[in-house]
Design a protein around this nucleic acid. Sequence first.
DNA 1: CTTGAGAAG
DNA 2: CTTCCCAAG
Lengths: 289, 289
Amino acid sequence: MCDTTFCRRAAAGIVRRVLTVTSVNVNGLRAAGRKGFLPWLAATAADVVCLQEVRAEPDQLPDELRDPQGWHAYHAPAATKGRAGVSIYSRTAPTAVRVGFGSAEYDASGRYIEVDLPVGGTAAGLTVGSLYLPTGEAETERQDAKYRFMAEFRAHLDALHERAARTGGHALVCGDWNIAHQEADLRNWRGNRKSSGFLPEERAWLTDLLDPATGWTDVVRSLHPGVEGPYSWWSFRGKAFDNDTGWRIDYHMATPKLGAAAATAAVERAATYAERWSDHAPVTVTYTI
Amino acid sequence: MCDTTFCRRAAAGIVRRVLTVTSVNVNGLRAAGRKGFLPWLAATAADVVCLQEVRAEPDQLPDELRDPQGWHAYHAPAATKGRAGVSIYSRTAPTAVRVGFGSAEYDASGRYIEVDLPVGGTAAGLTVGSLYLPTGEAETERQDAKYRFMAEFRAHLDALHERAARTGGHALVCGDWNIAHQEADLRNWRGNRKSSGFLPEERAWLTDLLDPATGWTDVVRSLHPGVEGPYSWWSFRGKAFDNDTGWRIDYHMATPKLGAAAATAAVERAATYAERWSDHAPVTVTYTI
DNA sequence: CTTGAGAAG
DNA sequence: CTTCCCAAG
């Protein structure tokens, strides 16, 4: 059923060494399932898959998407039908699953789910979250809502970070953060300085979060410093994908030890190329823990 | 451009003798145009085509649908976008075009348009209308609205009939009347006795309209008495089309002389078969006038 | 089951 | 440009 390195070693009682995690905004899991998502899922080496923009109630999903064979699946749909929705598929059973992050405004909005996974040989464990940070719109109330979410979610990130430090465990928050951090994180940064997703306040929020002394690690950037992208989202409009006019807004944010344990990172642009089943591409990282 | 018998004779100054008229509910002209409607239009021998459920503003239609080469096209969209909408394509130029039938409630609802066409050698002429009678829903206000429409439209039919009788001209009202008249006009009449479209009051309204002494002629039935159907609409749900579980709700209703001049009638079930571009099939009649 | 509008992305 | 919802058919 599961024959990744991670699973084989786990089954053999060997301390786990390699964990592969993928994050992808599927832009409607039902639509993705009608295109190439299922072959992609069947072929992936990931042990954990974080999904965003599922846009369906679990009851609306066919079995192979709601509860795929070989995976433990958890869903946090939005109260509003057809909106947002995050999920996590894990090859191994979590010890806990939590929806939301203690926010009255956002816990039913289908924007955050996290699971605790056992790490072989340790009691501390690993928390993996799937985040879909709200899309904003500059100069509107929707941007204010995005800032409110960011403020509340930052408190949760601080709590995760503190707990990991205290227990010797790890935390990893994957997802669509809807913010490009630096100029290298989007093709047309000059034209987007006033666009939601690249506003100074948003960028500063990430800079603060990623403060090297105490903060989180942007895993893909830490493995690929000084390069353009790799982008993970391209608008469906125009020829954005063909011209690689993209944004890097899908991140793996890891606590320090886990970030340092990241071995490889890749944006699976090819995975969406043959038949493009989302406007985002999967972002896959291998961790040696 | 136009090489039907009707057009060739007209171009040669010969009194027109054969007129072919088609009526079809296209269930969204834009969608039909993306499927097989255009090849059908290119191949039809019709001189006049009456369309219902166009569901588009003229500005939203591509040129080949809004104003096709070789036709004079007239559109009566509904005030509410994406709803109803009737049109007429005519190979020859009308002498008049009228939208609605003098109803405050319904003239902007995209449910009736009529054109006056010259009939070679006579001053009287022919009025052809394209009608999309509202869909009802038994025991609801929508059924009351359907009855209101029927009552108002009956007055217009009476006026058309009276004028034809007085001037020696003809009138023909084609379209989706949304009522099956007799048991032979729908496959499952027993199960639909309480369904809008086959209610006793609706059937009686048609019976009165078709009173042989003074009324209108149901042209297809007059040419094909005593047969089941031919149906012209099949639900998209289930296997209705494959099983021919249909309704005959698309009619040519003609003033007496014109009804008597009908030579052939056919429901073009095959036209929608290769690629089904509507839930209705074209109903085509040839008139020798 | 299908269309088109509409909001969101 | 694409997703899904919804009302209508």
